[in-house]
Design a binder for these strands. Structure first.
Lengths: 157, 157
DNA sequence: TTAAATCCTATTGAATGAGTAGAGATTATC
DNA sequence: GATAATCTCTACTCATTCAATAGGATTTAA
């Protein structure tokens, strides 16, 4: 499960992306539209700003706007910013690698091998799924556009 | 990140699988070999038993043994038992579905669509990766045996 | 100058994670 | 049958994380 914070971050980003390039939204507008606690949202937006996804203007008519192209903002990127490392084990994480204590030989660890397998699939998809996919209005358009073996939602879930 | 408990569960299952069909191991043997706190392991094994993965014999020369074929025990199955639902959002979970509060229209939720996409990929792989894959001694054999576009470990991670 | 916005840091309360503890129940062996 | 070794069950603890809340500092438009 992703965190509540991550959900909020994506919702905010989607709203900003819908607003379009160069157009800004204020914290309060986002908070109301996405039903996010205002002060919590502030922290999230600051974090997104610190990581170069959005830009802000302070003062009277300030607000936030998206910097990058929605098609260039990946799910993995956002998740790493708000929830930290995505890898199921630290010993297979690129961004937060650390050995498991009491693992004498990483290269022969069965658990590691098992998860390296599933993680590769997860990451591959997270790095190719972008905010732009979220913007498409009809449900399966984004999945279809990837020309992947699209599972029916009902089956995939 | 999966929980420490899940790591322990997989390690225990791997040891039991290596022991072979019909052969049992005692809690203490597993605990020592896999460096798992004994009492914590007890709880985990009980949980695996309650979910039909292992069988136990009590008393003097008791112990645990694997019931199912390692090739039939999937990563997703074990994870669900020890860590609970796998889905990134409850609203796309089969096993623990619940609506997100304040989500007026689930079918048009952009965040949901985004994660349905990545989750489908994750789950597909978790349901086809089994304990048997963990048993293969050389690192990439299991991945290759699936005839999937195998990423190099170093790149995938 | 003031009101409205973002920025920054600290605090809180509930939930979860990772164990610990200590009995009770069952079984092989002496 | 007693005993010791094992699994079974329930409760508890302690630290960390999650999801906010709080309150002031700073910046800017009007």
């Amino acid at each position: 499960m992703i965190s509540q914070k991550a959900k909020y971050a994506f919702k905010a980003l989607v709203l900003l992306a819908q607003r379009g390039r160069g157009e800004s939204l204020q914290t309060d507008e986002i908070a109301v539209q996405a039903a996010i606690p205002r002060k919590f949202l502030e922290q999230i937006l600051l974090q997104l700003k610190a990581n170069g996804l959005v830009e802000s203007r302070r003062g009277r008519s300030g607000g936030y706007m998206l910097i990058a192209d929605p098609a260039a903002i990946t799910v993995s990127q956002v998740l790493r910013i708000v929830d930290g490392p995505i890898a199921p084990l630290t010993c297979i994480s690129r961004t937060a690698y650390s050995r498991c204590r009491d693992c004498p030989d990483e290269t022969h660890c069965a658990v590691r091998r098992l998860f390296a397998e599933t993680y590769a699939a997860t990451l591959a998809r997270m790095e190719t799924t972008t905010l732009a996919a979220a913007l498409a209005e009809d449900g399966l358009a984004s999945a279809q556009s990837l020309a992947l073996p699209t599972l029916e939602l009902a089956d995939a879930i």
